[in-house]
Nucleic acid binder design. Sequence first.
DNA 1: TCTCCGATTAGAC
DNA 2: CTAACGGTCTAATCGGAGA
Length: 427
Amino acid sequence: MKSKPTQQLALIDCNNFYVSCERLFRPDLAGRPVVVLSNNDGCVVSRSNEAKDIGVKMGQPWFQAKALAEEHNILALSSNYALYADLSNRVMNLLAEFSPRHEVYSIDECFVDLTGMAELRSISYAMRERVMRWTGIPVCVGIGPTKTLAKLANFIAKKHPRSKGVFNYNALTEAQKAKLLSRIPVDEVWGVGRKLAPRLAEYGVQNVHELREAHTPTLRAEFGVVVEKIQRELNEVACVAMEEVTPPRKQIIASRSFGNPVHDVASLKAAVALFVETACAKLRAQQSHAAMLQVFLHTNRFRSELPQYHPVMAVPLITPTDNSLIVNRWASLLIDQLWRPEYAYKKAGVMLSEITPNTQRQNDLFAEAEPVEESKLMAVLDRVNQRFGRGVIRISSQDAGEEWGMRQERKSPAYTTCWVELPAAIA
DNA sequence: TCTCCGATTAGAC
DNA sequence: CTAACGGTCTAATCGGAGA
């Protein structure tokens, strides 16, 4: 029997992606500590190397980091997802040219299958240079026989300047592998997070080598199939396949924290109408219909002195739909059910589930077909909102002054995707 | 007892 | 001035309800 050749999987990861995007249009930010904040300017979600060195933590609430930030003159920017998504597409298109087998794993990461190719080092450097030249985004390349080891190799490439941004695990001897893995803490492994790492430590598993060599039946019994798979991947047995076509979403959520607490039902309905439109637009983009709608409200969970309330309510959509107007009628009804006057709401959202692709959709025998004009209206709405920015056309006439809108006090213009924001970019 | 289902947990980014 | 802590998604697992 012929054994499979070792896979050569490359994981390309953009360095400090959101910060790198912001720097493209602000050369004056080079060398300065910069962070990008999450929606609502809440938490730090991307840090320049300078900000990391100063000690700003990933996911840290911004108000907690502020003292440190002022002391060191750290620049904080609101996140600008339209910009990041556009640059991500450009990076991914460039990387796709290096192999017919590639998987976009996240906004800033991509797997590329280089199995069977020669000169992996020069290919890797070519990837870095090409992406840098055409987009200005710095990336690192890690190569391994499984996805998990490719990720680990990428971690080495990022961490050790000597690697110059490229690391090939497959090029190591067995002794070198053992030595390397024994020096990496186990929580750097893909799939081992803040809960699992301490539990593994109780079993004497602190570094990656110890996880790789751990007694498999015990591991399986104590930590389940997830960790067993991780161990197999560390032993160079591929358990996580390449997914070249992104499968359609099984659930679609649109939710947001409000800039200020909301009390009145009209504002909630206006906000939820926008969430419904966002969620349905995604549903239409992946050519599916949903058969279940959920709406939820949330008080501020960090204000434990205030009364807490997080109701959820679901309604089946008897005839599965992708129509924002139909969904919004239900959402509005659910809000009426959930809303209580005595609470200050900090967050709301909608979830669409029981999603089926249009191609395999079963029509309800007794339901009236959706009027053709309605689906045409949706198509027009998608095109306009795509060109001029989400929310330009809205369902529901409600607009209660937007005191619920997101805080975004430090946002850069959408340099590459939005004509309306161009003047701000040039100014 | 088995199966199904919703809720909960853990993780990624 | 004060208060200020993200958004989406998947898979596994658990526990109760119902067949």
